[in-house]
């Protein structure tokens, strides 16, 4: 697995995609830092961008990479290698190279602006963590979708739908149910619903750090208390881990029966 990881990582980190992606993150970050000249405000603006871009990048590049390396898969699966190891290696290679593009693209400008000695350092690290988690999760989802769908067009379609679902449709259903059942206490439901969508819990995690939830009356305080506690942070981290592991598990299951 480590060997596969090494090679796909080596291949990807040198590809123009990683470069373009890193450059994109860097340009956006520098732009925001330059315009706002305030680390915390730049972090708030970046949060919206990252919540939108990272899942999309993860799932799209995941799908593209998977389908593009079909022949590579064929070459390597004909070698004395376990399928599980091959796919795990591929997944890690891709997701970690994307994470590195992301971390460097964001990190370099922030470091140059002295984030480490500012009071925004925790916010910044949370943003990094949430952004990286989103990439890992959506890469895993992409690999699962691609493994389960031999047809490239179908795979792409499903991946886009999946992203659309988590980015917006899910929240739409969430909000509708909040409005339909507005006369019931909905705090617990909301907390559960948040943990079931990686984009939502990443957003909540960053917002907690930004301390805006305190601004929102009773319910905001309830959420703040829950997600701000060790239990809450542990739950979010746990949810993130489960959200990475379960698509990988599904992917490996699909890969076991797959013909190449």
């Amino acid at each position: 697995m480590l060997k596969i990881f090494k090679y796909s990582f080596q291949d990807l980190i040198r590809s123009k995609w990683s470069f373009i992606l890193g450059l994109f993150y860097m340009a956006v970050t520098f732009g925001l830092l330059y315009m706002s000249n305030d680390l915390s405000r730049a972090i708030v603006s970046l949060m919206n961008i990252i919540l939108f871009i990272n899942p999309l990048v993860g799932i799209m590049l995941g799908i593209m990479y998977y389908y593009n390396s079909r022949d590579f898969s064929e070459l390597l699966l004909a070698q004395p290698i376990k399928r599980k190891d091959y796919f795990l290696g591929q997944y890690l290679g891709l997701s970690l190279s994307l994470v590195i593009s992301f971390v460097l693209g964001l990190g370099v400008p922030f470091l140059l602006y002295g984030v480490l000695v500012s009071d925004a350092v925790v916010n910044f690290l949370t943003l990094m963590f949430a952004g990286s988690a989103l990439v890992l999760i959506f890469c895993a989802l992409a690999f699962w979708v691609a493994t389960a769908n031999e047809n490239k067009i179908k795979g792409f379609g499903k991946a886009i739908l999946l992203w659309l679902f988590f980015a917006i449709l899910y929240d739409g259903i969430f909000l509708l149910s909040l409005l339909v059942f507005e006369s019931y206490p909905l705090e617990k439901f909301s907390i559960a619903a948040t943990l079931l969508n990686p984009i939502d819990f990443s957003r909540v995690l960053i917002m907690l750090q930004l301390d805006v939830s305190l601004l929102f009356g009773y319910t905001g305080a309830v959420f703040n208390k829950f997600f701000g506690s060790y239990v809450g942070i542990l739950l979010i981290t746990g949810a993130a881990v489960i959200w990475v592991i379960s698509p990988i598990f599904m992917m490996l299951r699909a890969a076991k029966r797959k013909d190449f």
């Binding site: 090679y7 291949d11 590809s15 022949d71 004909a78 290698i81």
Partner: peptide, 27 residues
């Protein structure tokens, strides 16, 4: 078993030397 597949497409960014080293490394 040694295998020579029908269509030869490889990871695009690797060099010839590297792909040989890679297969060698894996096997």
């Amino acid at each position: 078993i040694n295998y020579m597949p029908q269509i030869a497409r490889f990871p695009e960014n690797l060099k010839v030397r590297e792909i040989i080293a890679m297969i060698h490394d894996i096997r």
